[in-house]
Nucleic acid binder design. Structure first.
Lengths: 148, 148
DNA sequence: TATCTGAGTTCGAAAAACGAACGCAAGGGA
DNA sequence: TCCCTTGCGTTCGTTTTTCGAACTCAGATA
């Protein structure tokens, strides 16, 4: 199976993994969540080649993760890339990466920015929970059963 | 900045994103969590080219996400790839992808397998919460502040 | 001895990414 | 009007990755 065809596999994990597991896509989304919205700004922030940036933005537009929104600047109409609801819903994925990164890939505890809950000032972390009993789950707590 | 050098950037999200945002890596981890442990089985399950599989396994070994464990079969000693604690801790990342995939990329609700909490039979989902008040958080509830 | 199997390695071809230059439309200034 | 700048891409030749088929090698098995 070529890499691209995971996009059509019958797996709720395989399809997103194929989409986000393409070079630059996760880093691009990180940048979007940090507030970057314009082609030029993505390009300078990430030092990605312009042609690949074009491609990745188009894939995310096509998937409905991003949308192009017109806006005015200096009297001209321009477009910016913004998250759709589907895109905003990727937040737990990015936060899960960050939670893991803080625990396992922190070089010497000096991060360039800090996240906290707007209302109470607390920290932010991703977790997996049971939709029924609410318990926090690890891989060992979860049973995988094949659909017949 | 070339793609690879995100591995050294001062960002708890950027570093994992650069590691997992390499082609095949997320799909490989999905396969590991599904129980695949041997080179040959990865290769046939994913139809990845053998040389790239070798490379990705080595990267994950080097990062300490996987470990090689010797075992006996037919009187011979072989090795299998298994998750370390660091690797098992990636579970929330994969589950966040799956939670998102179920909501936004489900083709017609027919998944090849199902996950549920071993103890109570409930469903599984990823979420982001406040470490202090326990509230579930979206991107809008979280404030980003630059470290001075 | 010949064969099989698991786990890679090698290598030439194809695909993807790179990066510098180019295109283009809109606005501003001379 | 003409020229310059800015934002946003596109083009294209080069480099890097990936592909895939063949090869290697060690240990069992016949």
């Amino acid at each position: 199976m070529p890499y691209a065809s995971f996009a059509s596999m019958p797996c709720a994990l395989g399809r997103p993994a194929a989409l986000l597991g393409e070079r630059w896509t996760l880093l691009l989304l990180r940048q979007v969540f940090l507030g970057t919205r314009r082609f030029e700004d993505f390009q300078t922030a990430m030092e990605i080649s312009r042609s690949v940036l074009t491609d990745r933005l188009n894939v995310l537009l096509q998937e409905g993760v991003l949308k192009r929104v017109p806006y005015q600047e200096d009297g001209r109409t321009r477009h910016e890339y913004r998250l759709t609801e589907k895109g905003r819903d990727l937040y737990p994925v990015l936060m899960a990466l960050r939670t893991w990164g803080e625990k396992w890939m922190a070089p010497e505890e000096e991060e360039s920015f800090h996240l906290h809950h707007r209302d109470c000032g607390g920290g932010v972390r991703a977790k997996v929970e049971c939709t029924d009993c609410g318990a926090e789950l690890t891989a060992r707590d979860v049973q995988v059963t094949a659909r017949q």
